[in-house]
Design a protein around this nucleic acid. Sequence first.
DNA 1: TACAGCCGTTATCCCAGGTTAATGACGCGC
DNA 2: GCGCGTCATTAACCTGGGATAACGGCTGTA
Lengths: 244, 244
Amino acid sequence: MEPPIPCTGCPLRPLAAFKPVTAREIASISAAKVGQRLCTTGATILAEGQATTRVYVLLAGWAFRFKTLEDGRRQILNFLLPGDMLGLQGELLANLPHGVEALTEVNLCAFAADAVPRFFGNHPGIALDITWLAAHEERLVDDVVLSVGRRTAMERVAALLVHLFKRAASAGLVEDGTIRFPLTQLHIADALGLSVVHTNRVLQRLRKGGFIRLDAQRLAIGDLRAMQRVGRYWEEPAPRRPLL
Amino acid sequence: MEPPIPCTGCPLRPLAAFKPVTAREIASISAAKVGQRLCTTGATILAEGQATTRVYVLLAGWAFRFKTLEDGRRQILNFLLPGDMLGLQGELLANLPHGVEALTEVNLCAFAADAVPRFFGNHPGIALDITWLAAHEERLVDDVVLSVGRRTAMERVAALLVHLFKRAASAGLVEDGTIRFPLTQLHIADALGLSVVHTNRVLQRLRKGGFIRLDAQRLAIGDLRAMQRVGRYWEEPAPRRPLL
DNA sequence: TACAGCCGTTATCCCAGGTTAATGACGCGC
DNA sequence: GCGCGTCATTAACCTGGGATAACGGCTGTA
């Protein structure tokens, strides 16, 4: 665990996607931080079923939440990008009902176990923000259920790519029309309830149709509108979200 | 909208499944109630995408949350039983990303729009409870994603039936080994990402295997342990949960 | 240079589950 | 009593996507 970076120098906060906070709030948030945690690609950030003692905010990098069946079948629940909170369910419910794994090198802001109840006692605004983040994550998972339950394989892949592209965009990660795309086809398959082989077939079709360029871990979407049509995926523009 | 029932006479609160609250908290909760809302079977409690002005707690009856694709494909996200809260996402996010429909006649305790932020300001304990309920619901949806993404049709149906049976049990709804089961096969299908026809096939197999009895809207599970094995479904015993 | 792992790709085969359609049972309004 | 809508059930048929396998490229390491 590295020493904490003060929140006043947070690289995320200036982004338009995030809601401004008061100086008093920043100070309290900063005070609750206990340090940075760095993880390498593929590392387990939080183990499935463990009793957690920390809540984190993802400062840089990608991660995902997942659950597994005892015979090894794995389902990815959703992806975590900079600004997302993780471990809250472990803090509230007795222990964490899912695992969290790093997709890239990851930098996490760590908060002590009791930071959450403390915010609820002293900072109703921050407490409400935390609840907002929880409700927002549930909304994402609701969308996953809709995809996996009712969209075709082609629709699922298209919708996922659009979704991730937009989220990466709002986290300021677009560079000349492309984003870093650290998922393997196995990750895509596990997120969408598909096999790797079929995921590959669908990606080929999207490439050949000129909808996407995807190589060397970079993704470009030529015509977002068209991809949304393929994926039957529309979402209202996201409002500014709280950070930490 | 009927006049509010005072929370002191709440029929749910005495159940072992619910966490006790202080007299002061009960008083505040009771004061925030604006009334009861009654809905009939099949009624839309909250419309998909609407801007909500109310948060509800389900006092009696069954309901479900769902999303639809514009071509009509519907996915049920989860089921709501007595004690569950609904409409919170509408209060926090700008408008409700899903619909809520009654499966039976339903009785709802209604709270004003600003009740939630008010609790956050005055009652950190209640605020934390609300967040607990949000996190708990997300956990349920996570399980749905795992089912729909990675379980076979047989496993899904078995897991859902066990899940609902247990929840009904903890809401005190078991009568001589059976529960009222208001879902049609279409509901089961829409909750599990299956077609109605295949749902019927699977239910037949479960009946013929002696795993369940299901008729006249009543469900009995002969051997819970065996059903859990079929559904590859295990969950740790639920701790006492907050109510309202 | 060789070997091992991981990942992407493609082909072949095949089945779990979708689709369509028909039939009956039941309840409801008139 | 008649007609209509909802729901459960079953059969016949078909397809989207799973399973398996083989190959190639890349990277790390020895």
